[in-house]
Amino acid sequence: MDEHKETLRVGAAVRRRRRALELTLAAVAERSGLSVPFLSQVENERARPSRRSLEKVADALGTTAVELLAAADPAHTVDLVRADDRDVERGAGGRDGPEYVVRTLVRGHHQMQAQEFVGDHDPGREFQLRNDVLMHVIEGAAEVEAEGRVHRLVRGDTLYLTGGVRHRWRAAGPDTRVLVVAVAEHIEAVDDHGPK
Rank of each mutant, 00 (worst) to 15 (best):
R15N: 09
R18A: 07
V144T: 05
Q113R: 05
V133P: 01
E67L: 12
A114T: 07
R86E: 15
E116F: 02
D191P: 08
H109F: 14
T24M: 07
F127A: 14
Q41K: 15
G173L: 02
S35I: 05
K56A: 12
V133W: 12
H151G: 01
A65Y: 02
V165D: 04
V181T: 09
T7L: 15
R166P: 11
R107N: 01
L69E: 09
R170L: 00
V66Y: 07
D84K: 11
R15W: 05
H167A: 09
K56L: 11
V101Q: 10
A172Q: 04
P195N: 02
L129F: 13
L68D: 04
E55L: 08
G124N: 13
E43C: 04
A141R: 01
V180W: 03
E126R: 12
G164C: 05
D192R: 06
R168S: 01
A189Y: 05
R82W: 07
V78K: 14
R95F: 11
A70L: 04
H76L: 13
V66G: 14
Q115H: 14
T7S: 12
M1G: 15
G156N: 03
E99A: 10
K5W: 06
P98K: 07
L39R: 06
S40V: 08
A141H: 00
H109P: 15
N44L: 13
A72G: 15
L69P: 05
L80R: 15
G108I: 06
R86C: 09
I187R: 04
N44H: 14
V150A: 06
